[in-house]
Computed example of a mutant assay.
Amino acid sequence: MKILLLEDDRETRENIERLLGEAGHVVDAVTTGQDAMFHATDGEYAVLILDRMVPGLAGLPALKALRAAGVRTPALFLTAMNGVEDRVEGLEAGADDYLAKPFAASELLARVNALARRPPIAEVTTVLVVADLVLDRVKRTVVRAGQRIDLQPQELKLLEYMMLHAGEVVTRAMLLENVWSFHFDPRTNVIESHMSRLRGKVDRDFPRDLIQTVRGAGYRIDAD
């Protein structure tokens, strides 16, 4: 199986690559969290093995970002940070297992094999496409007809929710709860104002309006 390894220490990295290779696995090794995120979003790996302490973007925030982007590949933290609070923090960040350094080779192999045997989680789409509009949920970018569209964080979250429900009518209550986390209606024009700004960026200067108002019901982004 194919495994992604994030480890910046050369000796440790080479030892793990050799161990996994002798067990018949294919290993892609990287040394930074940024590179780990780039590779992991391909969704081709059976297991991620991540060190928490690497230069630049560390393993913990890298995994958090991957989980937020919908990447559900089983992940094992392999790290010298082995306190109880460290392990709890790692598991809460989205890790499926936690192994402290120094480690026994046989235990690492057993844990990796156990993670790979877990039933697969339904694949989560990381790139949303509606007509000529493309939203990359990992890079947090929006492009329409090849033209980059810059959105504020809440506008991006609003568009993402609508694209996930493309072709469906989304009500005010759905938007308040899922985009703003309001479980009550504050009776403000927050949705209308954000929707107006979003339309101005997504539909302006394009021959076709994708975002539509459904009178008396809510909004819809046209999937046809």
Rank of each mutant, 00 (worst) to 15 (best):
K2N: 14
L4R: 07
D8S: 14
R10Q: 11
T12G: 08
T12R: 09
E14W: 08
L20C: 06
A23R: 14
G24A: 08
T32Q: 10
A36R: 03
L48T: 04
L48N: 07
L50Y: 05
V54D: 06
G59M: 13
L60W: 02
A62F: 01
A68F: 03
A69I: 06
V71T: 13
V71D: 15
P74V: 08
L76T: 03
F77I: 10
L78M: 07
A80W: 00
E85P: 01
E85R: 13
R87H: 02
V88D: 04
A93S: 14
A93I: 08
D96Y: 03
D96G: 11
D96M: 05
D97S: 12
D97C: 03
L99Q: 08
A100L: 04
K101S: 05
K101Q: 11
S106V: 08
S106W: 00
S106E: 15
L108K: 03
R111F: 00
R117I: 01
A122T: 13
V124C: 11
T125Y: 04
V129D: 08
V130I: 13
D132M: 04
R137A: 13
V138N: 12
K139E: 14
K139R: 15
R140G: 00
R140D: 01
G146H: 03
G146W: 02
Q147H: 09
I149P: 01
L156I: 01
M162E: 08
A166F: 07
G167P: 02
T171H: 06
R172V: 07
V179P: 13
F182Q: 12
F182G: 08
F184L: 11
D185W: 12
P186W: 09
R187K: 15
M195D: 12
S196E: 12
S196L: 14
L198V: 10
R199H: 11
R199D: 01
D203N: 14
D205P: 00
L210D: 06
I211E: 09
I211R: 12
Q212H: 13
G216A: 05
I221C: 12
D222H: 01
A223L: 05
